[in-house]
Amino acid sequence: MAEATLLKPKRESFWRSRVWKRFRRNPLAIVGASIVLFFMLVAIFAPALTADRLGRNCLRDLGVSRTEAVKVLRNPLNPKFWQATLHPPPSCYKIPRKGYSPIPKPPSKKYPLGISGGGYDILYGLVWGSRSAFYVGILVISVALLIGIVIGGLTGYLGGWVDNTLMRFTDAVYAFPGLVLVMVAVTIFGRSLTVIMLAIAIVSWPTYARMLRGNILKVKAQDFVDAARALGAPPLRIFFKHVLPNSIGPLIILASLDIGSIVLSVAALSFLGLGPEVGFADWGQMVNFARRWIVGPPGEPLKYWYTWVWPGLAIALFVLGWNLLGDAVRDALDPRS
């Protein structure tokens, strides 16, 4: 239920706006923003943070030897630093394995968060996993938004039979068993991250299309649109100048806050054995590795806590951060409060 800004906003500097003021004064907003910012930094500097533990293939594809990795990859003056940060080879997303034993190993100096079953370094998985989390989240939301805006915009603007046809189509997609469609798509086209993202995006756009349509209908009914119409402005101009901006703005903000929850969908897929390929740095998969270690040996029920606490915490914090931010933005945009 989107809170559209019903009044046409006056142009004013963002930093002086009431919205920003309200946002700033909300302690939970600050917490949320800090969490998201923290993950963003971790994601951006993942190569530097894990320079001491990169996998063989990652180093090879970067053209860096293990001995000089720390020096090179933590030095912003070195071009390799930028290459690794901006465009790391895909092999870096694979968690390097320390041995193959299925039994987890507790935190140690070299592996401060421990090693998960199968020899996967938990710290590495979490750091690079934050990259995949943003990557998946942002891409899914952008694709879903794009489709949603095109379809929602067309229905809202044109109305009539176009509206009816497109909305029935939207209903059909909305009525799809999302998870099953995603599973079928992933089984057919393979477990690559791209397929997973596209599949999730394709089942999640209808929400945005409906939201946008609703917003447009609301804005269309506003006085200032009637006023513009009375002044004789052409309908297309009214739509693009007045209606669309006022409907899309809140939609984009709200949609972007769903980024956090995409991680959960991927985690569910991992549980069903359809997440990214085994060994890919992805939080959902890491919790799934830990699935059989939630309970420890007799007498030590929490012996393997580190296998699921860390990735679980990462997911929870990530979602929490986006949610707090989301609530705060919603509150701040709400003119009544």
């Binding site: 549980f271 919790v287 309970v295 929870a316 990530f318 929490l320 949610n323």
Partner: peptide, 30 residues
């Protein structure tokens, strides 16, 4: 309010299978 909101997000973001297995282990098993 803060407590409820944070708890809500935590439960929502906790992968269902972690919660489920924990319940099986603690309530059913233990």
């Amino acid at each position: 309010d803060q407590l409820i909101r944070v708890m809500a997000v935590i439960f929502w973001s906790l992968p269902t299978f972690v919660l489920g297995i924990a319940l099986v282990a603690v309530v059913y098993g233990y």
